[in-house]
């Protein structure tokens, strides 16, 4: 079944550039561990996990780890090459954009306008990509990553997107890249977007295959075990949960029968260290950023940043897949600044 052109023998040598080691005579992973993980910089975007050739770098309960690395590490340096925080250049603000707007998908229902989903599916309809990577969340908020190839797949499955809980998106993106024929679209948090960009920078195959990166506005993410414990403690019943949001510095969990509200700041107790050092709220490196803040209820704020994003956005408008709303840039300021303040946590 493999149809490959006949090739000449002998042209089979090539060179691969590997990065400098900051700690000489140590394995690359040790470098990574020393520079990123141990310094609490790691945002758990899992770019390193996704690229690790042995598949040995793993995502433990709350930290990226490589058990037995002395024996098993291949020392190829891939993790260091792709880590967005190895040479951390914090990004913040709203970033460049072509269009700041808001939208509400007519085809999908989700929190707010479901524009993340809409972007992926419109890109799929355009033929730009053949799959999107989403996060699926069960009633208990446990996440699993989901490759979506068609609209029907969403029927029995409310794709809530990543909601304050880490999800292993990028390892799945790697798999998707090996399987895809046209391209992949991915929805992720700002740190993941940075990871994807780093992957694309380093490896042409990602450049070629990852076509659309939708970033989400992100204040922070939590570890599943901790956040669920915390929320249950606050009286949130996951079986009745409809929607959660952060409105004006307050965490609001809407359930069928009641609402639970408390100050976001209270969640700082369980705030992961990586997020406390993250300054990017709007995913400035993405093709399109989407979030609920900055637009009317039921709409998603949409920040179209690149040509690809623009193309898809135009397509959405052309096909009438979404209601176009109005985005208010100033509403974002509070959270952008809130995150920017975290710069002080970074000690390089």
């Amino acid at each position: 079944m493999k149809m490959a052109a006949e090739t000449k023998v002998g042209e089979a040598e090539w060179e691969v550039k590997i990065p400098e080691k900051k700690l000489k005579d140590r394995l690359f992973f040790e470098n990574l561990k020393a520079m990123v993980i141990d310094t609490q910089l790691c945002s758990r975007c899992l770019t390193c996990v996704s690229i690790c050739p042995g598949g040995l770098l793993v995502n433990e309960e709350d930290v990226v780890d490589f058990p037995d690395f002395e024996d098993k590490c291949l020392d190829c340096g891939a993790c260091v090459r792709v880590c967005p925080r190895y040479d951390y250049k914090p990004k913040s603000g709203l970033g460049d954009y072509i269009e700041f707007t808001a939208g509400q998908s007519k085809r999908f229902k989700g929190q707010d306008g479901a524009m993340g989903t809409e972007f992926i599916f419109s890109a799929m309809d355009m033929g730009l990509i053949d799959r999107g990577i989403f996060v699926d969340r069960d009633e208990q908020w446990r996440t699993s990553v989901f490759h979506v190839r068609g609209k029907e797949q969403l029927e029995k499955l409310p794709l809530g997107g990543t909601k304050y809980v880490f999800a292993d998106i990028l390892p799945e993106l790697k798999k998707a890249v090996t399987f895809t024929k046209k391209g992949v679209g991915v929805v992720g948090t700002p740190c993941m977007v940075s990871g994807v960009r780093k992957l694309q920078e380093e490896f042409p195959i990602f450049k070629e295959k990852v076509k659309l990166v939708v970033g989400l506005f992100c204040t922070e993410n939590y570890h599943y075990a901790e956040v669920s414990k915390y929320l249950i403690g606050k009286g949130v019943d996951f079986s009745k949960l409809i929607k959660t949001d952060i409105i004006k510095g307050k965490f609001v969990a809407t359930m069928t029968d009641k609402e639970v509200k408390f100050k976001v700041a209270k969640l700082d107790d369980i705030l992961p260290s990586g997020c406390s050092r993250c300054t990017d709220f709007t995913a400035v490196e993405s093709d399109v950023s989407v979030g609920s803040v900055g637009s009317a209820a039921g709409f998603s704020t949409t920040v179209v940043r690149t040509e690809t994003g623009k193309e898809v956005w135009d397509y959405i408008k052309k096909m009438g897949n979404a209601e176009v709303g109005e985005g208010k840039v100033e509403e974002l300021d509070f959270l952008i600044n809130h995150k920017k303040e975290r710069e002080k946590n970074i000690q390089l």
Binding site: V16, P53, L74, G77, A78, F206
Partner: peptide, 9 residues
């Protein structure tokens, strides 16, 4: 070749 990790697998 550009996408090679040099992982030596």
């Amino acid at each position: 070749r550009g996408s090679c990790l040099a992982c030596k697998i």
